[in-house]
Amino acid sequence: MKITLICVGKIKEDFYRKAVSEYVKRLGRYCRPEIIEVADEKTPDHAGEALEELIKEKEAARILKFIKEDAYVFTLEIQGKNPDSVSFANQLNQLAVQGKSHIIFVIGGSLGLHESVSKAADQAISFSNMTFPHQLMRIILLEQIYRGYRIIKGEPYHK
């Protein structure tokens, strides 16, 4: 199984990069992880709604270039389904059983995702009603994918 994270923006802080690297290494036992970073747009303070929409459109164009038709696509959105770790693991496993060989997760930038990206997704998921920095969300997502594979394999970790 190939797992791709498409993320808006780069991780600048070393401690975040180390955490991402650690989870990518751990996931290598279970899948082929890949992280694609697309450039984020600078958002001026007090940007109006029209400018924010334009920024999301530009980021969406970059994201959509990497979405493959044969992949199952999750977007991370506050309005998405909020699975627990076991049901998330079960869904990953079910997708594999159904023959999906590529799963893509999309993490938007500071303004969120443009509706064109949401429409291209098979499912929107949410990890919380709270807002997290997208750099931290990348780590949380990777940890949950890793936890999911541990659950699928019956390995101790998820307790």
Rank of each mutant, 00 (worst) to 15 (best):
Q144V: 09
L76N: 08
K153T: 02
V38P: 03
E115L: 04
G112M: 06
V8T: 03
Q144N: 10
R26L: 15
R147P: 01
L54Y: 10
I103H: 04
K12T: 10
S116H: 02
F132R: 09
H158D: 14
G99E: 10
D45A: 12
C7A: 15
R138P: 01
T75V: 15
N129P: 14
I78C: 08
N82C: 09
I103D: 00
T4D: 08
L51H: 11
S118N: 11
I78M: 13
S87D: 09
L64P: 06
E69P: 08
A120G: 04
Y16H: 13
V117R: 01
K153N: 13
M130W: 13
R32A: 06
N82I: 05
S101L: 13
C7H: 10
Y72E: 03
G80F: 02
R26H: 12
D84P: 06
Q144C: 10
G28L: 08
L141K: 02
I145V: 15
I6D: 01
A47Y: 12
R29P: 00
A47C: 13
F88K: 03
H46D: 14
F66M: 00
Y72R: 02
K2H: 13
G108M: 01
S87I: 06
G148L: 08
P156R: 08
E34T: 08
S21W: 00
L113R: 06
V24F: 10
F105L: 06
K68H: 11
K42F: 12
G108Y: 01
A124I: 02
G28N: 13
E69H: 08
K12M: 03
E115P: 03
F132I: 11
I63H: 05
S126Y: 05
G108R: 00
L142G: 01
G80P: 06
I63K: 07
Q135F: 03
D122I: 04
K81V: 09
K56V: 01
E37C: 09
Q94Y: 10
V20M: 09
